[in-house]
């Protein structure tokens, strides 16, 4: 579970990134986080993951306040950032080994999980090369594997499907569904509204740091003439802002 309670963040007096955001993401659901560019999605995610400190408000991951107990809170989630261009000088296997050390994954489990995920995402033969030599999609895959190695209860994914080939995208979406069905939490942001329509149980739409809507897709469609597509509803809502 993820809870935002009245969270605000600004970068200077004229740039309010997130404004009194309150949001709850329950266990057992895939939660889509939508918004135009510069709406505050990535800022919200970075506050959730401890990379940024909110100016006010509280964020809890599975009931643990990330400001008061950051170590325990960070153990609860696995994070896939919006850019996969990280630790480029490390080989794939070195990166995964490093992530496993950071999350204290036992040796036997890490070997088993690395093999399982690298087979699933077809990365087994690439693990011996540096991440710098990977294509964008391969970099995305290695970051996803790294985030899932410690089997976190909460998945926080920022544009996770960007650059993935169709098979890998399908694999990831399957896993997201399985994870939510196991009464765990998947929180992901994306610009691909078709994926949100097919996958998400609940959505939130953010613009200029405010939540415009938070609820199920059915509730969203009921509020906006029933049979309009999510794309049209989204454009209407964010245009009016």
């Amino acid at each position: 579970m993820i809870e935002f309670s009245d969270v605000s963040k600004s970068f200077g007096p004229s740039k309010i990134a997130v404004d009194h955001l309150s949001l709850t993401v329950n266990d057992g659901e895939i939660f889509g986080f939508l918004g135009p560019n510069g709406a505050g999605k990535t800022t919200s995610i970075k506050m959730m993951t401890g990379i940024l400190k909110p100016d006010s408000g509280r964020i809890k991951i599975n009931g643990i306040d990330i400001a008061e107990n950051p170590i325990e809170a960070k153990k609860q989630f696995g994070y896939v950032p919006d850019s996969p261009d990280q630790f480029l000088r490390l080989k794939g296997i070195e990166y995964l080994d490093f992530m496993a050390d950071m999350y204290d994954v036992p040796l036997e489990l890490r070997e088993e999980r690395i093999k399982k995920f690298s087979d699933e995402f077809e990365m087994s033969t690439a693990l011996g090369n540096t991440i710098q030599s990977y294509s964008h999609g391969m970099r995305q895959k290695i970051v996803i594997i790294g985030a899932l190695l410690h089997d976190p209860a909460v998945w926080i994914l920022d544009e996770p499907l960007t650059g993935l080939d169709p098979k890998s995208a399908y694999t990831l979406k399957q896993r997201m569904r399985q994870h939510a069905d196991a009464h765990k939490t998947v929180f992901f942001s994306t610009h691909v509204l078709e994926v949100v329509e097919n996958l998400c149980d609940h959505v939130a739409i953010i613009d200029h740091g405010h939540i415009l809507f938070a609820g199920s897709l059915e509730e969203l469609k009921e509020q906006h003439k029933g049979d309009e597509s999510l794309e049209k509803i989204f454009l209407e809502m964010t245009d009016h802002e």
């Binding site: 401890g50 990379i51 170590i71 325990e72 809170a73 990280q86 950071m102 204290d104």
Partner: peptide
């Protein structure tokens, strides 16, 4: 910046 998210 990513180092800040590790539970270390």
């Amino acid at each position: 910046t990513l180092a800040c998210m590790f539970p270390v």
